[in-house]
Design a binder for these strands. Structure first.
Length: 284
RNA sequence: GAUCCCCUCAGAUGC
């Protein structure tokens, strides 16, 4: 504001900085105003900066606005790329508009933007989150037909989707198949399965997988630890959970708010209020 | 100085 009062017209870099700022601070109203402002001044970002904007708006839930912005820029001669569409498809999935997501997925290829593995991953995840695992599996088959190789993200997404509909055995089958193919499971794959096993009162199997990670030299991260800690707490194994809580720091990891919340909740449910408070005070 | 990161995809707690 001070800039414009002094007659200095902000350029696209200024707008992008502000836009990133308001978006990461979750200020959708400000983002909207900035966007209108920018368009009114006829300032055009390049494609990559444009994609950053599209993504930032989507993450705020302003998906329709983001899509309108795309249409507006296309009218002015801008050519979006596959990333642009992938980002918007993800946005529609986030606001639970799978119909729109699918439509855009079909539309992009008519505009010269070929689907890539991310396009499929995003859409597959949309269906998985919506517990439409059959459609997700159909897309997995389709992508292979299109000669787009699924990657570890694809498989992990499918595994998570199967877990969400409690098809844990099917998920484990895919997990074991992955080992056979070149795509080795990574920390996210393991954490997904560990978390689901814990939630299905199969903590011992979760711990087996945790050990397997070590054997395979896949380093657990804060997510892995939080799932294990939460699982052990809910199984009433507070001491074991606390052991993992301490081990996490030994491995050079920082507990997150989720980790603390899981552990503190465990202490509380087991009437160990002193320990809960002590940990709470350590959070700062 | 180089590499990595630097536009898009997967996992954890509670509400």
């Amino acid at each position: 504001q001070e800039m414009t009062e002094k007659g200095i017209i902000p350029n696209v870099v200024i707008y992008l900085c502000l836009m990133q700022g308001v978006c990461s601070s979750e200020l959708p109203q400000h983002a909207k105003r900035l966007l209108d402002d920018m368009l009114a001044r006829n300032i055009s970002p390049n494609l990559q900066a444009f994609n950053v904007l599209i993504n930032a708006l989507c993450k705020l839930g302003l998906v329709t606005e983001s899509h309108n912005f795309l249409a507006f820029m296309v009218e002015r001669g801008m050519l979006p790329n596959t990333t642009t569409y992938n980002t918007l498809i993800k946005g529609y999935c986030l606001i639970q508009r799978l119909d729109k997501a699918k439509h855009l997925f079909n539309y992009m290829s008519t505009q010269g933007c070929d689907h890539d593995v991310v396009s499929y991953n995003v859409l597959i995840n949309g269906y998985c989150k919506n517990q439409e695992i059959d459609e997700a599996l159909r897309l997995l088959k389709e992508m292979s037909k299109q000669k787009i190789d699924p990657n570890v993200v694809t498989y992990t997404t499918i595994i998570h989707g199967l877990c969400l509909v409690s098809k844990l055995e099917d998920a484990l089958v895919i997990f074991h198949k992955m080992q056979d193919c070149g795509d080795t499971a990574n920390v996210v794959t393991y954490s997904t399965l560990i978390d689901t096993l814990c939630k299905h009162e199969r903590v011992n199997e979760a711990l087996d997988l945790f050990k397997l990670m070590d054997d395979r030299h896949v380093a657990p991260d804060v997510f892995t630890f939080t799932s294990i800690i939460d699982g052990l707490c809910k199984a009433g194994e507070i001491d074991a959970a606390n052991g993992f809580f301490l081990e996490l720091s030994c491995r050079g990891l920082q507990p997150s708010v989720c980790t603390y919340t899981a552990m503190i909740g465990g202490f509380c449910r087991n009437k160990k209020l002193d320990e809960a408070e002590e940990l709470f005070l350590k959070m700062e």
